[in-house]
């Protein structure tokens, strides 16, 4: 029963997320409302880690397989994909280097500053 209860709690939060996403006119997916809600409930100790831990570990472990159905959808959007393939490759390969570089440099600079202040 432990798993059933954990899974029910997770589904309930997903459902509340859906409700919020329906009523709040912002481009925020239901899942993010649910994530926030779960996070707040954990921080305020309304929900204990033991109420959701095993089921959520399991779901996170198998997460990649949930991406399969939508990704197979390229079958139908194949022409759009090939028409912007060069753009996609530039954005994903060069863009990723830029994003990684910028966030690494900024994080490192601030960390070093903080440490030199302490000394």
């Amino acid at each position: 029963m432990k798993y059933l209860i954990q899974f029910s709690i997770i589904l309930l939060l997903s459902f509340i997320g859906e409700l919020l996403s329906f009523f709040i006119p912002l481009p925020i997916p239901a899942s993010i409302y649910g994530l926030f809600l779960m996070f707040i409930l954990l921080c305020t100790k309304v929900l204990k880690l033991s109420h959701v831990k095993e089921a959520s570990d399991f779901l996170i472990e198998i997460m990649p397989v949930m991406f399969i159905p939508v990704t197979v959808g390229i079958m139908d959007s194949y022409t759009t994909l090939t028409s912007i393939l060069p753009e996609i490759l530039i954005v994903s390969i060069l863009g990723t280097c830029v994003v990684m570089g910028v966030s690494a440099i900024i994080t490192q600079i601030i960390l070093k500053r903080k440490r030199s202040k302490k000394q």
Binding site: S31, L42, L49, K53, F67, I68
Partner: peptide, 24 residues
């Protein structure tokens, strides 16, 4: 294919909600 694998896709929202756990 999409209609029969819908159950996998429908887990995307719950699993994202679960990301609150490692964050916490």
């Amino acid at each position: 294919y999409q209609s029969v694998t819908r159950f996998l896709h429908n887990l995307l929202t719950p699993v994202t909600v679960c990301l609150a756990v490692p964050l916490y």
